[in-house]
Design a protein around this nucleic acid. Structure first.
Lengths: 339, 339
DNA sequence: CTGTTAGCGCATTCAT
DNA sequence: ATGAATGCGCTAACAG
């Protein structure tokens, strides 16, 4: 295509189409009725000259940036990346462009990223997880359409998209029970960041309720604490075995720990799923690659991203967004056997 | 239109600091000497009023967007995400902001993404992989500082950052040889996208050369074709076994196929690494999670991203960038045993 | 060193 | 329905 040095502006095409610049602007933004003839002439000139609007001029004049800020916590983490992917999909064909920033789970970094996003005058903001105070979030929400995903924000029920972790924990446990298991161990966690800890404790509560609903009592000897890291899954198994309380299944609060558990069992010569069934949470990328492939609870990451975008776009149009609540989905693989 | 934010402009702070707007601009961009007193007054006013420059006005007036376009092919793929991560790291503290776009390995999507990035007036462009013609790339490079990463572009040697795949294949094979293996099978691929196919054929050449250098002849019966997908690794093993040519080690051109191979071996009751050693390529996220953990060749993704940014920033300053060539690194895990 | 004067390219009043 | 005029907020010549 023509890459002439001369930058062609709205004036060039106005001249070529024999109309005024404002008319050109009108047809380009579809902002007012324009005679069909002139409209055609303008569009023709636009195509002819390969005109590219200058978005800075547009933004400066209109006050809109046509961008959506996305504050994530962890580039490279499957769950968060899945949400990003959903956001990309949702934005497709919408004229808006995403601006990504990474808070890295560090409050200071996160605040700076937020500020930068705001400085870039994003028209809407999607914040995934993170630890920004609800007070700050409220301030932001007053000025800018905001969606907080993968985090429960009690004071911002209108801006919040989250996953039912309690039900996830319940269903995971319930599945094991239905497979004939009764002595079900649980690896949970508490010494992690506040957001994740809430999710994890919800999963644990679901676990306990499922046991209760089966007519049994949760046995504290079957519950061990990790820290969501793989290594803590290994230790959790050591602890469990040391306690001497037998079990035929394990529900780990996340896949990382489930993998650690699997390693520990392997070293002990305990077979999965013949001797012990194993279920994780998150459906991390590696879950299907484990031996045996891991049964786990999938969080609908992509769907969350898409819903977040849809909500933002609604808000930008003054409509009230609908905010689905997401459920986890059982992904059955070979790590669980009927007892 | 929730734009009732601070409407504080450079004029407000000029007034408050008793200087002219241009002086304010000067201290803000450090573009010319300003008397210490006035400078202090300006900075004070800026802090006092919590002034936020309007990026659009800046860009419109200066012609710079302070953004770097990043065209990737596959959000969610570990190698590409690693590069993105490196780009983020490299950009940190640089005043530039990344604009991401996803080409999804589809030429049409990719071209559109490129165009959008260009429309956004990015000051520099990093293209990761992809299939945009070198001719187009040359055109782009004439207008905008450009780095093409993870792809060899013969006609653009000054803009290209790539990984030594040949050496990677050589070293992987060499390692197996040093571990005492002699009958080494190779799973390669040819029916995939052109960029990847080049990488993969380089790996194969490295493999063959290593065999030659050991004083043996490459045996065509030991080479099978897959398509980089996991399933093709399974089939590859079936084919190999059907051929009846014995082997004690396998070098797969990527981890996906290595995993497929591992599954097939498992089903056949062939142990890894006791009966057959296995080595992959890429160090995908799941590699350490395999049983046994997979020995593989790591591509320095993060480093590539950082180098790309460094190069772009150099170019933006008129300096000639230095373009390191990247080597793969052997990651030793338990899937290879001495014979 | 510093203030004054023009734009940057477009959207959006106003008039007509 | 359409053209002329007026900024949007900032940078960069151009004088002093």
């Amino acid at each position: 295509m023509p890459d002439n040095e001369h930058k062609i502006t709205i004036l060039d095409i106005a001249e070529k189409a024999n109309v005024s610049p404002s008319t050109v602007s009108r047809v380009l933004r579809n902002s007012a009725g324009v005679a069909a003839r002139k409209r055609a002439a303008v569009l023709h000139a636009v195509a002819e000259l390969d005109y590219r609007p200058n978005i800075f001029a547009q933004s400066l004049a209109s006050g809109q940036s046509m961008t959506i800020g996305v504050l994530t916590q962890n580039f490279g983490s499957p769950f968060y990346d899945g949400i990003l992917h959903g956001i990309l999909l949702g934005l497709e064909g919408s004229d808006y462009w995403p601006l990504f920033a990474d808070g890295r789970w560090q409050p200071a970094v996160e605040m700076r990223a937020l500020q930068l996003l705001l400085d870039r005058r994003v028209d809407g903001l999607i914040i995934i997880g993170g630890q920004i105070s609800e007070e700050t979030l409220q301030q932001v929400a007053r000025k800018t359409p905001l969606i907080v995903a993968a985090r429960k924000t009690p004071t911002l029920p209108e801006n919040c998209l989250y996953v039912k972790n309690y039900e996830g924990g319940y269903n995971a446990t319930r599945y094991l029970i239905e497979m004939g298991h009764r002595d079900i161990a649980h690896i949970t966690a508490s010494y992690v960041n506040p957001v994740a800890v809430d999710d994890v404790s919800q999963r644990r509560k679901g676990y306990e309720q499922a046991i209760l609903d089966a007519g049994w009592q949760p046995d504290p000897r079957l519950i061990v604490e990790g820290n969501l890291q793989q290594q803590s899954g290994v230790l959790a198994i050591e602890m469990l075995l040391a306690r001497g309380r037998s079990f035929s299944a394990i529900f780990a609060a996340n896949d990382q720990m489930a993998f650690g558990a699997r390693l520990a069992l392997y070293r002990r010569g305990i077979r999965v799923p013949e001797d012990v069934s194993l279920i994780g949470f998150d459906d991390e990328t590696f879950a299907p690659y484990m031996v045996p492939p891991l049964t786990t609870m999938r969080q609908p990451d992509v769907e969350i991203g898409q819903a977040a975008v849809a909500a933002i776009l609604d808000m930008l149009q003054g409509k009230k967004p609908d905010l689905p609540v997401f459920e986890t989905e059982l992904v059955v693989r070979e790590s669980v056997a009927r007892r």
